[in-house]
Each structure stands twice: as structure tokens, then as C-alpha cells.
Design a protein around this nucleic acid. Structure first.
Length: 214
DNA sequence: AACTCGGGGCA
DNA sequence: TGCCCAGAGTT
């Protein structure tokens, strides 16, 4: 795919989603960090419900440490993988206080050193909280990249690196949001809405409903 | 690369 | 009911 074609593709995705935004509820980088840690293998709706009462009660690492793990669990509605997530959140809050002055660090190495934070979560924080042009490859983006042969790769890291190489610079900062929204609402896992797909000319997936390229 | 943790949302 | 979810950590 040449550069002009790529520019067209991301232009279409941008026009379909004019205002990139996360659907997780948060007000600060710290709240986003907690929300994203909780979001592993869970939907954003589940996370929003789970955290509905939490940030009003505790919105800083110090406040969550003061709650303790049991107290944290009383303020967070149960969610998948909750035991490990709660433990990781407590450890992460402790590290934020002891090593980062209670602030969310802005560099990848420090973020990934936090328990419960891997490459994907670090990319979300860097992009959404700090405005850096990272691409967090979640299950949606991984699916879109491979179905459409936009950036086929065996691992999320491979997909991320291809996207970073191939996304035109003027689209790079918001590409993450457009791709994930496309995956969530159009290129759905089970029943893709191919009739609404603006990039079906790239699709090589067997589930593709409409025939053929534009 | 494969496996495990896991309850909620949704068709 | 079965599939899927803004994954990370371990083996």
C-alpha cells in the first residue's frame, strides 16, 4: 500500500470519528491509569460501572493506599480478574508515591515497571493522558489490522510497529482512537457491520459480507 | 508461544 | 448460553 492510499484510508477513518475520545470515565492521568489497569479483558462499560464510586472516595495514590486493599474492593464493583487487579493497583500506588512523587510518570520505561501495566496500558496513558503519538494495540485494533491487512502481524507488538511505520504522520496521534472505534462499532468481532465499513476495499477477511473493493 | 486469571456485557 | 472484552504475568 503506498503512502497516498494510506492517507486516504486514515482520512476516511478520521471523517467517521471526528472527535477522538476514550469512553473510559476519568479526570486525571492517575484516574485513567487505574481505569485502564481495571480494563484488562473487560469492557469499558464494566470499568465505568466498577469505578463509579471509587474516584469520588479516592482519586490519588495516597488516598487509595489509605483505603487498603480491602477498602479498595469495597469501593470498586467486582470485575473480571479483580483479585490480581486489586493487588496490582495497591502495588502501583505504592510505587507512584515512593518513586514518582505521587505522579503518573510520562515515560514508557517507568510506566511499564508499574505492576499491572504492560506495553498496551503504557501506550494508552502516553497517548490519552500525555498526547504522545503511540498506538495501543488492544483486541479491536489487532483484529482490524489483521482482517484488513492494514498491518498484519502475529503479535500485538508486531502490529504496533507496522502501524507506527505506516500511519502517515499527520494521522499518527489520533490513529489509535480511530482504529479502536472502527473495531468496536464497525469491524466487530462476531458480526461485523460491513455495510457501514469505510475501508472495505482493504478487507481480506473471510467474514467480509459485501463483495468487493472500491 | 501457550497458559492462567474471571466476572460482566451482550446477542 | 457461548463468545468477547481498551491484557499482564508466568512458565
Amino acid at each position: 500500500m503506498n503512502a497516498e492510499k494510506r492517507r486516504q484510508i486514515f482520512g476516511r477513518l478520521r471523517d467517521a470519528n471526528p472527535s477522538p475520545t476514550t469512553e473510559l470515565v476519568y479526570r486525571t492521568p492517575f484516574e485513567l491509569l487505574i481505569a485502564v489497569i481495571l480494563s484488562a479483558q473487560a469492557t469499558d462499560k464494566s470499568v465505568n460501572k466498577a469505578t463509579a464510586g471509587l474516584f469520588a472516595a479516592a482519586s490519588t495514590p495516597e488516598a487509595i493506599l489509605a483505603l487498603g486493599e480491602d477498602g479498595l474492593k469495597t469501593h470498586v464493583r467486582t470485575i473480571g480478574l479483580f483479585n490480581s487487579k486489586a493487588k496490582n493497583i495497591m502495588k502501583t500506588c505504592a510505587m507512584l508515591v515512593s518513586e514518582h512523587d505521587g505522579e503518573v510518570p510520562r515515560n514508557r520505561q517507568a510506566l511499564e515497571a508499574l505492576p499491572g501495566v504492560g506495553r498496551k496500558t503504557a501506550n494508552v496513558i502516553l497517548n490519552t493522558a500525555f498526547g504522545e503519538p503511540t498506538i495501543a494495540v488492544d483486541t479491536h485494533i489487532f483484529r482490524v489490522a489483521n482482517r484488513t491487512r492494514l498491518a498484519p502481524g502475529a503479535t500485538p507488538l508486531a502490529v504496533e510497529q507496522k502501524l507506527l511505520r505506516h500511519v502517515p504522520k499527520e494521522f499518527r496521534k489520533d490513529a489509535h482512537h480511530w482504529l479502536i472505534l472502527h473495531g468496536r462499532y464497525v469491524c466487530i468481532a462476531r458480526k461485523p457491520r460491513c455495510e457501514s465499513c469505510l475501508i472495505s476495499d482493504l478487507c481480506e477477511h473471510p467474514d467480509k459480507l459485501s463483495a468487493s473493493p472500491g
